[in-house]
Write a protein that binds this DNA or RNA. Structure first.
Lengths: 178, 178
DNA sequence: CCTCGTTGTGTACGAGTGTACATACCGCCG
DNA sequence: CGGCGGTATGTACACTCGTACACAACGAGG
């Protein structure tokens, strides 16, 4: 029989779950679809993650950590010499022009917390990490508002299909900064 | 056999679908669950709505119309003598303190457009109706930004479980108004 | 060497799903 | 009055799903 002892299998299942959600959405997530994607037997996914919610939680956590890494790597956000509103607007533009399935993956996992209380602490941390970073360039209240406005602007672009308008975003964000 | 000719059946199916989504989410929406809720045979739901997406589209449209009616009825939003930011913040507070399943219903239908291009025109109109109303109190660009910020603030409260802070919301909204 | 408990696997079951389709009903037009 | 066509229904099929559970492999401790 195949590999009986496989450290890191749990992680590979999480990675597979993320790919499945990126491709087919949360609706397409099942023990079987993940098992096929990760190339492990069905029993393996149910063994490591008894319920689908466990798996979803792990996927959200992972995506949140990846996101935190991404923003930490974007040094211009922390550089006090840049125009914060312009920098944020440019960042959103890059993100929105990127791979659509990655965008949908991140937002869908994030929004899943609406119906699943178990995911809310992770979603809160996700938003909190960004707010904390922005708070170093301005005050905490403004940082929170900036995060909210960015969320709203991105959602508007994604949900209505209207193209993203970077000038508008920069202007609106700038108004929030005292 | 029961009622063969039933005008308004289509509408009753839509209403039932909305109740199902409110109770169990989009994930719980199926031809069968709607049929049971509407007390009609299975074939009736598949006859009026060949695919689930058709039904979802109709439900979103209906919810959007209800929403448009709600904001139209809230006269203070149009009254030029009120403080717009304070009025919006108070309105969000009332809404967020209301029935959670209704909140989840509206947001879940709205957010469903993320993965379903067919729903985007309806979502766009939903957001557009509110923006158009606000544009009569300020300019069009500011109105759009207000809608985005309100969306972001509501989502933050709903996704993180943090309680809604009306003072903060009023202050942030006021900053957007020139 | 031989148990024993943990880790991992395969299979089977019952429930629920979308869909297709033959059939039934009923108002209307000829 | 007769049948035609749109409306409505019930059933059946093929499929996917979560879950349970018996069993296989293996490392460790006796």
């Amino acid at each position: 029989m195949a590999r009986r002892w496989d450290p890191g299998r749990r992680q590979r299942i999480i990675d597979a779950a993320i790919r499945v959600v990126a491709r087919s959405g949360i609706a397409g997530l099942s023990h079987r679809s993940v098992a096929a994607e990760a190339d492990v037997p069905l029993g393996s996914t149910t063994y490591h993650f008894a319920t689908l919610d466990d798996l979803l939680l792990a996927a959200l956590r992972q995506a949140g950590e990846d996101f935190a890494g991404t923003i930490a790597a974007r040094r211009a956000l922390s550089d006090p010499d840049t125009d914060l509103a312009a920098e944020l607007a440019a960042w959103m533009g890059e993100w929105l022009r990127g791979d659509r399935s990655e965008i949908e993956l991140e937002y869908e996992l994030y929004l899943a917390a609406l119906r699943r209380p178990a995911l809310r602490p992770v979603a809160a941390e996700w938003a909190g990490v960004l707010a904390a970073l922005l708070a170093r360039r301005t005050d905490a209240v403004t940082a929170r508002a900036l995060v909210a406005l960015m969320d709203g602007i991105c959602l508007e672009a994604l949900l209505t299909g209207r193209p993203y308008d970077e000038d508008y975003a920069r202007d609106a964000l700038a108004r929030l900064i005292p």
